[in-house]
């Protein structure tokens, strides 16, 4: 029982990290019609920035995370301004390749600006608590709650605010949305900014258990993309639920089967699920017009 509770608690934390990253990917997919492969790299880059700021100024890790997220916001805006907004007429495949080019640029810039050594990013809060025989750190509780709150805000914003309506309109039909007077360009820009920021938070939540290094987001990126597929790539909810499910499965597999192979087994499992249910767990079949 206590082991299961422990796994459940851990899953809430890892699932939250995957969900934040996945939300960023879906947000960009729905406004820019491309799968953003650079999400993880941009997050890694901003996490490095936050860590360097923390090391130089000695501010608290929470403050450093806020600085990192603001940095990511700006980075997202710059990426959209210099690259994505100029690629509106580019076909979807080339757009994907552009995001792959972004990986190369940021992965090249990171060691140049921040060095090649892995850096340590401290936890947000120290201490831990016993809970049904399982221990959970306050930091994990903090991460779980902050993640949930941010997702709550995002979902509220998507449903109730003008921006959310614009995102959904842009997503369902870019041209019509523009004709209806929705500023699709700034909606897209905001989406890139928010996505980068969410990813950065995910990176910094992950950082204390790992370290801040060039490949820190590799697994998160792959997992988040797979979560998006499982969620059907159409719904924000689907991706988030899939992310938590994957987080849970990942912790189960590492505990009961193998921690070395947990990611590999998980990827294979997801691919098999996709083979059986091609449109994802929650996706709908779309009829293409000829």
């Amino acid at each position: 029982m206590d082991i299961f509770v422990q796994i459940l608690l851990n899953s809430l934390e890892t699932g939250g990290i995957y969900a934040l990253a996945a939300l960023g990917i879906i947000l960009i997919f729905r406004t820019s019609v491309t799968t953003n492969f650079a999400q993880g790299t941009i997050s890694m880059f901003s996490a490095f920035f936050a860590t360097i700021v923390l090391m130089i100024t000695g501010i608290s890790s929470i403050l450093a995370a806020v600085v990192g997220m603001i940095f990511a916001l700006i980075l997202g805006i710059l990426v959209d301004f210099f690259v994505i907004s100029r690629a509106q007429k580019v076909n979807p495949v080339s757009k994907q390749i552009i995001t792959l080019g972004l990986i190369m640029i940021f992965l090249g810039l990171a060691p140049m600006l921040f060095g090649t050594d892995p850096l340590q990013f401290p936890r947000f809060i120290y201490g831990s608590h016993s809970f049904f025989g399982a221990t959970i750190s306050y930091n994990a509780i903090f991460n779980i709650i902050v993640g949930l709150i941010l997702m709550g805000i995002l979902f509220f914003a998507l449903q109730k605010t003008k921006w959310g309506l614009s995102v959904r309109a842009t997503a369902s039909n870019d041209i019509v949305a523009r004709m209806m007077g929705i500023p699709t360009a700034s909606v897209t820009r905001a989406s890139w900014a928010i996505a980068a920021s969410l990813g950065t938070l995910a990176a910094l939540m992950l950082a204390p258990t790992n370290s801040v290094n060039l490949s820190m987001m590799d697994t998160v990126q792959v997992t988040a993309l797979l979560a998006c597929i499982l969620g059907g790539f159409t719904s924000f909810y689907g991706a988030v639920i899939a992310a938590y499910l994957i987080g849970f499965a990942s912790n189960l597999i590492s505990f009961y089967i193998s921690s070395i192979w947990s990611d590999s087994i998980l990827y294979l499992l997801i691919l098999i699920i996709i083979l059986i249910k091609p449109t994802g767990l929650f996706g709908k079949k779309v009829v293409k017009k000829v």
């Binding site: 580019v90 390749i97 552009i98 080019g101 972004l102 190369m104 640029i105 090249g108 990171a110």
Partner: peptide, 15 residues
């Protein structure tokens, strides 16, 4: 990282 940046920028410019 110069080679990565070179190729990354070139990809985007060419596209």
């Amino acid at each position: 990282g110069a080679a990565y940046i070179f190729n990354g920028v070139l990809i985007i410019l060419v596209i």
